[in-house]
């Protein structure tokens, strides 16, 4: 983990099967990267929302938030709903949200829920496809 990374206190990382790490850029931070791996069930999804709200509170000058879902294999509908809430929160605060490279299952849930067209999903070059 690089010096600007931290994972302490992330609520979603406390759930079985979910790993998460946070990286911040700038001082004070203007960009945050949150990497989620494993699976994101209902409770973990709601905790992810709480984590993001906490980050926004702690970093009032935040301009960008990147959720790296490259290593996320599963997300429940509630967890995907939490992603939608994060989008609502960041939009209201003029923070640019990027949802990076969701896996095929997560992408499928996003599409079934009709969120794929709303959420700012970014595919990494060479990233896995849906």
């Amino acid at each position: 983990m690089s010096p600007d990374q931290e994972d302490a206190g992330l609520l979603c990382a406390a759930h079985l099967g979910t790993a998460a790490s946070l990286s911040l850029k700038g001082s004070p931070p203007f960009a945050a990267g949150l990497r989620i791996e494993g699976s994101l069930g209902n409770e973990a999804g709601l905790d992810l929302l709480r984590d993001v709200e906490g980050i926004i509170r702690r970093c009032p000058g935040l301009l960008e938030l990147e959720l790296d879902l490259t290593g996320l294999n599963y997300a429940s509908s509630t967890a995907v709903g939490a992603l939608a809430s994060i989008y609502v929160e960041t939009t209201a605060r003029r923070i640019e949200l990027r949802i990076l490279d969701p896996g095929a299952q997560v992408m499928m849930v996003l599409e079934v829920l009709g969120f794929a067209s709303f959420l700012p999903i970014v595919r990494k070059a060479g990233g896995r496809g849906a």
């Binding site: 509908s77 709903g81 939608a84 809430s85 609502v88 939009t91 829920l113 009709g114 969120f115 709303f118």
Partner: peptide, 10 residues
């Protein structure tokens, strides 16, 4: 139902 609510929220 959730989808409609989330969509409206967004």
């Amino acid at each position: 139902a959730q989808r409609e609510i989330w969509k409206a929220n967004m």
